[in-house]
Design a protein around this nucleic acid. Sequence first.
DNA 1: AATGAATGAGAATTCATTCAT
DNA 2: TATGAATGAATTCTCATTCAT
Lengths: 233, 233, 233, 233
Amino acid sequence: MRVGETANAAGAPAERGRLDKRRAIVEAALRVFARNGYAEASLDMIATEAGVAKPTIYNHLGSKENLFRYVMTTTATRSNAKALEVLEGFPKEAGGLRGGLEDVAARLVDCYCDERSEAVRRLLYAEALRFPDLYDAVRASGADQFIEALAGRLARLANAGHLSIADPVRAANQFIALVYEELPVRSTLGTRPLGPDEAGEVVRAGVDTFLRAFAASGGGDESAQPPAPAPAP
Amino acid sequence: MRVGETANAAGAPAERGRLDKRRAIVEAALRVFARNGYAEASLDMIATEAGVAKPTIYNHLGSKENLFRYVMTTTATRSNAKALEVLEGFPKEAGGLRGGLEDVAARLVDCYCDERSEAVRRLLYAEALRFPDLYDAVRASGADQFIEALAGRLARLANAGHLSIADPVRAANQFIALVYEELPVRSTLGTRPLGPDEAGEVVRAGVDTFLRAFAASGGGDESAQPPAPAPAP
Amino acid sequence: MRVGETANAAGAPAERGRLDKRRAIVEAALRVFARNGYAEASLDMIATEAGVAKPTIYNHLGSKENLFRYVMTTTATRSNAKALEVLEGFPKEAGGLRGGLEDVAARLVDCYCDERSEAVRRLLYAEALRFPDLYDAVRASGADQFIEALAGRLARLANAGHLSIADPVRAANQFIALVYEELPVRSTLGTRPLGPDEAGEVVRAGVDTFLRAFAASGGGDESAQPPAPAPAP
Amino acid sequence: MRVGETANAAGAPAERGRLDKRRAIVEAALRVFARNGYAEASLDMIATEAGVAKPTIYNHLGSKENLFRYVMTTTATRSNAKALEVLEGFPKEAGGLRGGLEDVAARLVDCYCDERSEAVRRLLYAEALRFPDLYDAVRASGADQFIEALAGRLARLANAGHLSIADPVRAANQFIALVYEELPVRSTLGTRPLGPDEAGEVVRAGVDTFLRAFAASGGGDESAQPPAPAPAP
DNA sequence: AATGAATGAGAATTCATTCAT
DNA sequence: TATGAATGAATTCTCATTCAT
């Protein structure tokens, strides 16, 4: 039994203990990698934090590199699932469009700013050269799917005449850029907590700009926000 | 006897060699850190690549950590200087506004995609937790200055009635987000070269969205781009 | 229901499987020890190669050290039995003496060059210090018995006047030295296959020298070989 | 400066200390390898026994494997030099032939039974599979040279009519086999000291058999030894 | 100022062995 | 009886750093 396996549904009690250990290892590993980066995370730390002996990690995951890959893809997949759930609340009509977008954006940003997501993002950057394939794998199982789904939602709104969008994929990318990209800077790459509603402000401003750009021209945007007062930098 | 950089006739040869070594060390260090990350960059590699003995690095820079800080801030400062130069070409009138913005954005993106900048960005992410102060230092001496300057330029255009911007700092951030943020993904965090004009497309689309959102409402945008046909993703 | 080869009605099936496992373990162990030496042979390898679980080895043989001892003495005993069989063809008269000795020597050398014998010899050398008693045990159950038997045969020939031998044990040792000792060198200690008839040449030359030295002085050696032309080294 | 180097004649004082350390490492390594075999010799032991820190071994010799190779070839080369010296006393005339051969053989056997030689022999056997090339290298720089030299001496005696030898290389091999090969068995592969004159007896008996076989036929062997009384096995 | 040499501390990984089932 | 899982101990090797020159 090795890495890729999924638990057999009705596990024997022994199997149960085994899976507990495995889970403990993976969770500890994410924490330790997040705190220290790949190179400076030692298996000693991970073993201690997981409450298992070092060789147990090797029994389960094979090697440090493999453990890292597993932790990263697993975590990214979980994050992605949450992000996709967010899309279910995507507005489908013009009525409440702004509010709907803000809501979706806020919850999306929440996913992105989750401690684990931030950790994965930092680690991907950090190890982009050591694990070039990993970035692609994580994107494929994560952000790319999300972009596609978001593009589909935007296209529907455009088809219905509520938005004016030529290239939905690009618009999706721009949407995310507008509502999120200022935040890593403000949180020092997810290292420092954001102030209350700091994310909210960025989200509202981002959605505002997005709607200014893409709201269907004749479009009665019911609640065109008045120019907000400049927040402190 | 230490002499400044102004026409010192005599006495420099020894001092000259010393500075050469220091420069060689710093340059080698950037390359090695960029390739391997902080933890896996060994002073042996750096010393070899710089053509000096290991203790010489200590003589000049004190410690690995200090060398890293020095390399990062120095490089970031240099990058920033280039970015600020770009702003000098910023358009000041409505005529040629789109072209001017595209030009500025293109050159800015060029700076951001420079090998050294990408390396610094990756390293900042990677070591955000180990060197939390470093991120702030680099931002302060780099991107923050640039944002402020860009915000100033935008504000001038707004004052002149060419753009409609309530919060120039936020608009500056959004400008950068729109014209740049898609690129790291496409280049695998600066690890893979971009296709020809891949950056150009992103830049044009970003400026287009920016102008849709912020062009002064009555504003005769001389060349309002028609909705582009959707490019292949 | 599995039945043994003697008509034991009841009780054997489980026992049968057990013995099979034991045999599999011992055989796998010999191969693995031979390939890797004692220290670098892991019980994992042995278990895998034997097709059993690691603890099963402990159930059967107790410990790595004990397994090693058992494998070595067992194998040596088997080798010895074969060598003793060879002696049954030992010539008993002057007629065909040379041919008979060559024949015996050839078959003896064959035993010595058997893969398993070579392995045991290498392992004995390798572990002479770690298992000093093992060497004696293996000698006692192996080569020493053979020397004694060979000495007996030579003594009989001497008594019958066909050979002139003062100390039969020493002569036996010298016989073996003459017909065998060049071979380990040529086969890199049993690690490389010998060329065709490489062993044959050494054997013939050895027997020739032996007969020159020990043929009964008046002795009509029926086929005193003329000095052979020097073979290529 | 690396492995193969020989000391520069007039070493600076610093260089002197360096060479001392290197020598200490190599000598300690031979002892530890001899006691424990390759696999069970740890660099910790070697470092401790040499009185240096572990990394110093790596600085000097690069890796455990390389250290082993170096120790083996170095030691073998030294042994060989001694063996070749022995040949200088080789008898050149019929007069005193037996005594001369016995003398040479005794001193040769002394070389072979030297603690270091025995250790190298054991290690070669032990690691024949792990380091197949090493055996050849050691033979080439050691025993093979000696065999050739001995063959030359025997050929001279044959040319002069004092011996009757068809194939001198083979005769050289047989000479060594006769005077030496019984000894490893008696000393448990060099692991146990030989009794007083145990080697002497084997040597005399070996030379006796050799001369019986190869003394020039008409040859007045001045002191044809009477058949010795059989010694106790 | 620059360097060759040396080292203490710590890294990943493997192994013989033992439980609990 | 046979086994999957777990582990303490030990291995090779690397690294940042310091001396003596």
